Amino acid sequence: EIQKLVNFDLGISPKKLEWAQSEQLANAFKKIKWMAPPATGLIPIGEKLVEKALKKLLEPEFVMARTRDPKVYKGGIPFLIEVGIAYGGNAGRETAEGKKMEIMRFANRAPLLFDAGSCVTTSAINSIDWKRYYVQDLENSPLSIFINLISTHVPYTSAGKQSIAEEDEVNEEIRFAAMQILRDLQIFLGGKRRAADQAEKKRIFEKYIPETAKSLSKLTGEKEEALIKKLEKLVLDRFGKDFSKEPEEEKEEVEEGEASEE
């Protein structure tokens, strides 16, 4: 299968490999879909338990968790990533300026309390285009992001074991897990935004109903009270339905578009 992805004979001696051929070979390895490593030693918390814990702790408006399939880094060390995202409610950390985003970092279920700036979890989360998911200001959003790295050998940055080293495979898995959840958060926030827009339009129309009815009454001779009732019904028919739900076809388009990132 690898031979199909390179334009030279794999039987060539490694000593004779040119730089361009080495790059081809490295890229070919990345494109191969390898069998997932054995996960017997990797015990995740589980999506349901992560969601249950976040709900109980934060009482959020939105919560979701994802557990990725096992992967390897540095050629053979197995690991897997769990990510949970909670939005609204008590999510985020309280500061004098208001709610701020927080990343709850764990390695093999043990919390990592220091050196967040040098941790791969932080760089992975910051590398995502959050505005695409209707989170306009990540740092000042009511978000709690739970990340748990499970591995037989956690790549800590130091002996203090408070920060996870920058491994490309780990970074990528955190991003993918987060983006899987963000598809649904995007739909949730989009629904909230549409509902708020419709509520504001409804409020504006209702504000001018009395004046409109009064003017129409003078023009048509119809009673003002009857016109008010008709106008109120028109506004209710137009803005009374639930705009917070996104059509199914729109959701499918979002999912298809996001799949290309993975």
Rank of each mutant, 00 (worst) to 15 (best):
Q3D: 03
L42V: 09
S217I: 03
P111F: 07
E232M: 12
R93N: 03
E51S: 06
G46N: 00
E262K: 13
A36C: 10
G84C: 05
T121Q: 15
R203N: 08
V72H: 08
V235I: 11
P70F: 02
R68V: 14
G76Y: 02
L42R: 04
E200F: 14
A39C: 11
A86S: 07
G98Y: 03
E211V: 07
L227T: 04
D137M: 06
E258W: 05
I204E: 10
Q3M: 01
V72W: 07
E261M: 12
K4L: 06
E61L: 12
H153K: 15
T212S: 09
K241D: 11
E252I: 15
F114C: 08
P78K: 01
D197F: 15
K31L: 15
P247I: 02
K245I: 09
K4M: 03
M179I: 14
C119Q: 07
E248N: 10
F114S: 13
R109P: 15
E224S: 02
G191L: 04
E59T: 11
I77M: 01
E224W: 00
F79D: 03
I187M: 01
G41C: 10
N148I: 03
A86T: 06
E258R: 04
F243K: 06
E173Q: 15
F79S: 08
G88A: 02
E1Y: 09
E211G: 07
L80T: 00
N27I: 10
S141E: 08
V235Q: 01
E225H: 05
I204Y: 10
V120Y: 01
I43P: 05
K55P: 06
P70N: 02
E255V: 09
K245L: 12
E1K: 12
I128N: 05
S158W: 05
S123E: 13
L182A: 04
F205D: 07
I81S: 05
I81N: 04
